[in-house]
Structure formats: C-alpha cells, structure tokens
Design a protein around this nucleic acid. Structure first.
Lengths: 133, 133
DNA sequence: ATTTGTGTATTATATACTTAATACACCAAA
DNA sequence: TTTGGTGTATTAAGTATATAATACACAAAT
C-alpha cells in the first residue's frame, strides 16, 4: 500500500480516489477487508482522523460497509463496483480536455504525445502486477 | 476575460495559468498591456490582493514586467513566450497520464475517448475566435 | 492643486484541512 | 478479567488561502 500524496488536494480525497482506483483495477474483491483506520494511517503516515474521514466518505458513497466493530469491507454491490471504473475514466478525460482545450493543439499531436508517454510507462512496468501494496 | 474558477486550487494559481494559456494560444502580443490589478479583480470578481499575488507570481516567473506605475505588460522575451506553450502541454499530459495510469485502460480505448470528446468540442466552437475576453 | 488610477504593502478575519490528543463502546483473544 | 484492536466522536491548535479594509508613493489628467 503506497499512495503518492500531493499537497494541493485534501488528503482524505486522495485516499478515497486511491481505493477507487484499486477497485477499478480489480485489485479488491467484493467483500474484501480493508485496513483499519489506524492501520491505514500508519501505512500512509497520515493522521487516523484523516483516515477516518476518508472511510466515512467511502461509506457514504456506498463503496465500503462496516458491520459491528469489525474492519470495514469493500461493497458486495456489483453495480457500484462496475460504476467506479467508468466514473474514474470519464473524470480523468474530462479534466484533461478542460486543461488542454485553451491551448489549441491539434488532436493528432495530442494523441501522439499521449501514446508516447503511455507506452513508455507500459514498457517500464511490463509484467508487473498492479498491486503495489 | 473570463476564467472558470474552481475551489480546490488557489485562485492566484488559476489566474497565473489563465494568462499562460492566453500567451500560449497567441492571444497576447509581446509587450501588450494587461489589466491593472484592480481592473482584473473587478472582472473576475476576486479580491485585488489575490490579483496582486497572481501578478507578483507572474513577474517572478518573467512572464510580465512592470515599469514605474504603469500597467504591467507581457514580457517581450520570445524565449519565455515560446516555452510557456510547451510547458502547459507537457504539464497537462503528465497529469493526465498520472491520473489514468492506475486504471489500466488500453491506450487505444483512451485515444478513442479523447478524440471523441475533443472533436466534439471542436465542432461546437468552429469558427470561433480564441479570445473570450 | 486636486482627482484619479497605477503598483505595492500591511493587518485582521474567516474558512478548510490536517494534525494531535483523547475518549468511549464493543468484542475477541489471552 | 484484562488486554488490545475495532469503529466512532470531540476538542484544540496550526497552516494556507481568500477576503476585507486600508495605506502610501507616484504620475498623468483635469
């Protein structure tokens, strides 16, 4: 488990997105246990309260659920899980288009740059698992 | 002059990027006057202090210069101007790759989505000027 | 001379986020 | 029974940002 935290965005938001990414990439099974608040806080070197806030957010969004005082778990709702991936992709593409739009670069040049960067990364991670926990 | 301000990012950073985009798109001539701090603040409905902070930032980056108590102007340094465009593009592409990487979507699917969104916008803005001031 | 508009600077207040330090109910394991 | 790990909640303090309200030197226009 490792998350590159930036300073601009609230940490709890970044933690939520991290779990969404893990779910989207299929690295979490439905119903799978996730680390406790304190455990996560230790791993990410953040405050337990911040971890709690992230989990609370995820619970409200139906991404995880908590029974009794057991560690929270990934939702078993397949519909929710299926939606996460699409949501993340659309969000990323929209943000990108919004940021690149004012510059007026030909779409083909853009595609060229993306393919270049993207495949460069794929070369570096060939054969790797997605799970960097 | 219109800037869509979001709440996450500091306003002064967004203002700086706005001017960089204008420069990159060729909507500003070298040496061209830009609005005064107070004028910009009025146009964008922000605080004059925030406008001042943005201009100070731009001045430090060599994007604009100020002589006496005249309105600031876009730099005449062609090298600086030429760099802005490339910088913005690389920055946008890098941010996009970083955000989309964990999801493991095939690059061709990604390119498809981008072309779709991008050309959709181009259709809607056909014949428009870039200048939305 | 006065007014107006430049850039520039200072001080104070408000908000969002993070961290810190506890606290408590619950339950399982030793 | 005690210990330790769950989730959950509260209060306080610190930081960055934005806004508000001024202030001052300077210069051009009236």
């Amino acid at each position: 488990m490792k998350v590159n935290l930036n300073k601009r965005e609230p940490v709890y938001v970044q933690v939520v997105r991290h779990f969404k990414e893990q779910i989207a990439a299929g690295n979490y099974e439905p119903g799978q246990e996730i680390p406790s608040r304190r455990e996560l806080a230790n791993q990410l070197k953040i405050n337990p309260n911040t971890a709690q806030r992230a989990y609370k957010e995820m619970e409200e969004q139906g991404l995880i659920f908590t029974e009794g005082n057991n560690p929270s778990r990934i939702t078993k709702d397949g519909k929710v899980i299926g939606t996460v991936r699409e949501e993340l992709i659309i969000q990323a593409v929209d943000a990108f288009i919004t940021s690149i739009r004012p510059i007026n670069i030909p779409v083909d040049d853009l595609v060229g740059l993306i393919k270049e960067k993207y495949t460069e990364i794929e070369r570096n991670t060939r054969g790797d698992s997605n799970d960097r926990s």
